[in-house]
């Protein structure tokens, strides 16, 4: 794996006295899907948030180690966090559209970058909604409030919103856990298409989803990275017994 875009080096995370991530070193391959799996509370979401510094807003959070994006330490003092997040987008577990119109939601990221060109924004909004497989359902009423959409549509809207600024990496924290099976299938299909152009890191508690979608899988257990490798190998012959037990559903 030499075409990696993200790398964590000996990352330790603490919430007050609780050691939530223990010495995690891992590389994320560019233009691939990496799944983070493990029982709940093992640190998957924490690790995901390490990459776009969303843990910074948690008061109890402390971290040591290094996190590199294309070789640059994103925890460096001079790092501009808002710039970083323009190249690392995030989709949350629960859809969180802004109480604005569908159009304004998708255009938001462009507008805060100071882009004023109406035609450019219009085109990008359409393109992102198409990428998120939502365009056909909403094209006739882009001015409708995003809150009027169904849960599945809201989540695809949030994906479109993240894609509109053309990030390099997309972090997804259990993006389908709040969705019905049909919406879930749509989002999975979407992830499969997006990996041509994006690097995706996805947290999931669904083993089938991990094996269907991902190229690499990382198994976490109580803050430790137990096993990391090609998804095929992890699922076909895991090296650690605990991984085996988790994947086959014997615990978790």
């Amino acid at each position: 794996m030499d075409n990696h875009i993200l790398e964590s080096k000996s990352v330790n995370v603490y919430y007050d006295d609780m050691h939530a991530l223990k010495n995690i070193s891992m590389k994320v391959e560019a233009n691939s899907v990496t799944a983070l799996i493990g029982p709940s509370g093992c640190g998957k979401s924490t690790f995901l948030r390490v990459f776009n510094r969303m843990n910074d807003y948690i008061e109890a959070f402390r971290m040591d180690g290094e996190v590199l994006m294309e070789g640059k330490n994103i925890y460096h003092k001079k790092m501009q966090v808002d710039e970083l997040r323009k190249s690392i987008g995030m989709v949350f577990q629960k859809p969180n559209p802004f109480p604005k119109s569908i159009f304004e939601n998708v255009a938001y990221g462009l507008k805060i970058q100071g882009i004023k060109d109406k035609e450019f924004i219009q085109n990008r909004v359409e393109k992102s909604l198409q990428q998120a497989a939502l365009w056909d359902e909403v094209k006739s009423d882009l001015n409708k409030s995003a809150l009027a959409l169904s849960g599945g549509q809201q989540q695809r809207l949030c994906i479109a919103r993240a894609l509109a600024v053309e990030p390099r990496v997309l972090l997804m924290d259990e993006p389908t856990s709040a969705l019905d099976p049909i919406s879930t299938a749509k989002v999975e299909e979407l992830i499969n298409e997006l990996k041509q152009n994006y690097t995706i890191v996805i947290v999931t508690h669904n083993m089938q989803q991990a094996s269907r979608l991902s190229d690499y899988t990382a198994f976490f257990y109580m803050g430790d990275l137990i096993e990391f490798g090609k998804t095929e190998e992890i699922f076909r012959n895991p090296k650690v017994e605990r991984t085996q037990n988790y994947i086959t559903g014997r615990f978790g």
């Binding site: 776009n52 969303m54 807003y57 808002d82 710039e83 970083l84 997040r85 323009k86 987008g89 995030m90 949350f92 629960k94 969180n96 559209p97 802004f98 109480p99 604005k100 938001y108 990221g109 507008k111 805060i112 970058q113 949030c158 919103r161 993240a162 600024v165």
Partner: peptide
């Protein structure tokens, strides 16, 4: 205002000022 909106705004690269005036105040 739900914290998830604030986090959504931050995750898209908003500064604090942008988050306050473009998301929090309207919400």
């Amino acid at each position: 205002v739900p914290k998830s909106l604030k986090h959504g705004a931050f995750a898209l690269g908003s500064t604090r000022l942008q988050t306050s005036f473009r998301v929090m105040v309207p919400a």
